[in-house]
Amino acid sequence: MIGCLFIHGFTGAPYEIEPLARYIRDSTDWVVRTPTLPGHGETLYLKGTHYSEWIEYAEKVLIDLLQSCDKVFIIGFSMGGLIAGYLATRYPIQKLVLLSAAAYYINPKQLVADIKIMLRDGLNKTLHKNELYLRYKKKIVDTPLSATIEFRKLVRKIRPELHHIKVPTLIVQGECDGIVPLKSANYLYQVISSTEKKLLLLPCAKHHVCYGEDQDKLFKEVDTFLHESTKEYIY
C-alpha cells in the first residue's frame, strides 16, 4: 500500500493542496492524508503556537502512514514544503514533492505587480472579485506577529538541513509567485543532495500552484514523477 502525505503552508489549510490531493485520490488507491497544522485552518488560532508544534504534528501523521503503508510520499506546499523536506531527512520516505517551498520568501517584483492590479481593481470598484486580495486580506488581519516570527524561526532551522535530502525530489515553482521568489526553487535544486531531482517551472502560476492555468500540467508532472520506478535508499 502507498501513502501520500500533504502538508499545507503557513496560515493556510488543506484547501491549498486539495485539488492535487483530490486528483491523486481519484486516480489511485493510495492512502492520502491532508492534516491541518495546529492553529491553522479556515479560521486561524495562531497566537501562542510554536513552530515545533507544526513540525511535530506533521511528523505524527507521517509516522502513522509509515506504520500502515509500504511506501510513503510527501508533498509539501510553501512552509509545508520545508517541513516535508525536513521530514525527508529523518524518515524513510520514497519521494518528495516541493510546491512553492519557502526556502526564501517575498518576491518584490511580482508583489509590486500584484499590488498594482489590486489598486487598479480598487479604482474600478472590482476589488471584491480579485482572488489574490480575497485570499490574503483576512490572513493579514488574523495572523499575529508572534506567529510570523515562529515561521521565520522554522525557515532558519530547516534551511541548513535541506542538503541532507537524498530521496528523489520534484521542485515546483510558479514563475508569477509574489510570495516565494524563483531563487527559492533554484536554491533548493542546488542544495538538495539527491541524484534524482527535477525543477518544474510553471510560467503562469502564482503562489498557489494547485490552482490556475498550469494546473493540468502540474498534475500530470506530479503523477508521472510519483509513478516512476526508483531505487531504494538507505537511511
Rank of each mutant, 00 (worst) to 15 (best):
T195F: 05
L99A: 11
A88R: 06
Q173Y: 02
C176V: 13
M79A: 08
I192P: 05
E161Q: 14
S52E: 15
V97C: 11
G48M: 03
L132A: 09
I63D: 06
L202T: 06
L65Y: 08
K129L: 15
L201A: 01
P181I: 10
G212F: 05
S78R: 06
Y233A: 04
I24L: 15
L87H: 05
V155F: 01
P144N: 11
A84E: 01
S184C: 06
P92M: 10
P181D: 10
K166N: 09
M1D: 12
Y51R: 06
K60M: 12
P168K: 00
E150V: 12
A88K: 06
V209Q: 03
C4K: 00
Q215D: 07
F10W: 03
G12T: 11
T89A: 10
L218N: 10
N107R: 14
L5W: 01
E196C: 03
R120V: 01
M118E: 10
P144S: 06
G81W: 01
Q215P: 00
E213M: 10
V222L: 02
L154Y: 10
E221D: 11
W54A: 01
I179H: 04
I75R: 08
S78F: 02
L46G: 00
K125D: 13
E53Q: 14
S68E: 15
M79C: 12
G39Y: 03
L145W: 07
T143K: 11
L5K: 02
A21Q: 00
Y136R: 07
T43I: 11
V167W: 03
S52G: 04
L111V: 02
Q190A: 13
S184M: 09
Y136H: 11
E196H: 08
H40V: 04
S100C: 14
T28P: 07
L37A: 07
E221H: 02
L20C: 12
K157T: 09
R152L: 06
L170P: 14
R25N: 12
Y233M: 04
Q110D: 15
S194K: 09
L188E: 11
W54G: 01
L5F: 09
L132W: 15
K153F: 03
Y105V: 13
L119N: 12
K197L: 08
A84R: 04
L96W: 04
I140L: 15
I165Y: 00
C210H: 09
K139E: 11
I115D: 05
A113W: 06
I106F: 14
E131L: 11
E42F: 14
S146I: 02
A101D: 03
L65E: 04
L188I: 07
D142C: 12
R90G: 13
A147S: 14
E18L: 13
T34S: 12
K139C: 07
K206E: 14
I179K: 10
V167A: 05
N107V: 05
I2W: 07
M118Q: 13
F6P: 05
Q190G: 04
R152I: 02
D121Y: 00
K139W: 08
V180M: 11
E16I: 01
I234V: 12
L65K: 02
T43G: 01
K137G: 02
Y23E: 07
